[in-house]
């Protein structure tokens, strides 16, 4: 198991009130799974995402990532875990505007204290994987939305993380570019990457192999994509000229 959540709770205090965002979540994710987490806003999916990403600590329960118990770790150790085992892809890309694409991809390796040469080589390889070799000297504002998200994916992958966490990765993209990004995810999944994606769009979620639906801070349903309602939606009309896979 890459991820093992046991009875995870998260309680926020708002004044004297206690609001439970997560209410006893149990979840196992195996290596090379492709999971989509769905749910309405307020269902707890963002909180779950933050805890999975070690950005936040649960109030109760245990979380084992890659065999390591993270729930007892301090801020520094959690930073190390994020650096080594988790790759984040955000809705708004979060690239540093002053750095070139290549430098943005190198960022996690800087904090991994990798040497200059291995950093360069690994960053270049990651950028190749997302098919942007010809754009690596460009700054984010010289790239399209889809290209920016691909740079962000390269940054998430560069440290060879155990899991790739994507939070609404297509939320800021048009449908055509979204398909490109999802095709890239498919390809990564086929090459063995574990992917967990948060989305509220069924069209996006249907690309995953397993759908988890959250409701009121609990796992409401946890089904293979074929058994989940998303598969009953009419397949979107394929857009002409979009390759289902990105050639590396």
């Amino acid at each position: 198991m890459v991820i093992r959540l046991r009875n995870i709770t998260k309680v926020y205090r708002v004044g004297a009130e206690r609001i439970a965002a997560l209410n006893g979540v149990n979840l196992d994710v195996d290596r090379n799974e492709y999971v989509a987490v769905m749910g309405a806003s307020g269902s707890g999916k963002s909180t779950l995402m933050n805890i999975l990403g070690c950005l936040d600590r649960p109030t109760g329960g245990t979380y084992e990532l890659d065999g390591r118990l993270t729930t007892s770790m301090g801020a520094s150790a959690l930073a190390h875990v994020r650096n080594e085992r988790i790759g984040f892809v955000f809705q708004s890309f979060e690239l540093l505007p002053r750095l070139t694409a290549l430098k943005n991809v190198e960022l996690p390796l800087i904090y991994a204290r990798a040497g200059w040469f291995s950093r360069r080589a690994r960053a270049k390889k990651a950028i190749e994987t997302v098919g942007l070799s010809d754009r690596m000297r460009h700054r984010p504002n010289q790239l399209s939305g889809g290209q920016r998200q691909r740079v962000a994916i390269a940054r998430a992958l560069v440290a060879r993380p155990a899991i790739l966490l994507a939070d609404e990765p297509t939320g800021n993209l048009d449908s055509r570019t979204s398909e490109e990004i999802l095709a890239l995810f498919n390809q990564l999944h086929r090459s063995g990457q574990t992917i967990i994606m948060v989305t509220h769009e069924p069209d996006v979620a249907r690309h995953a192999k397993r759908i988890i639906r959250m409701k009121d801070g609990r796992v409401h349903s946890d089904l293979p994509v074929e058994e989940d309602p998303v598969s009953e939606l009419p397949a979107p009309t394929p857009l002409a000229g979009i390759p289902l896979e990105v050639s590396a």
Binding site: G53, L55, A75, S76, A79, H80, R82, N83, E84, F88, E94, L96, L107, P108, Y111, A112, R155, A159
Partner: peptide, 15 residues
């Protein structure tokens, strides 16, 4: 935001 991102990709508080 930059600080947040740096932390997300693994910058320790000390860094």
């Amino acid at each position: 935001r930059e600080i947040g991102l740096r932390k997300a990709v693994g910058a320790r508080p000390s860094a």
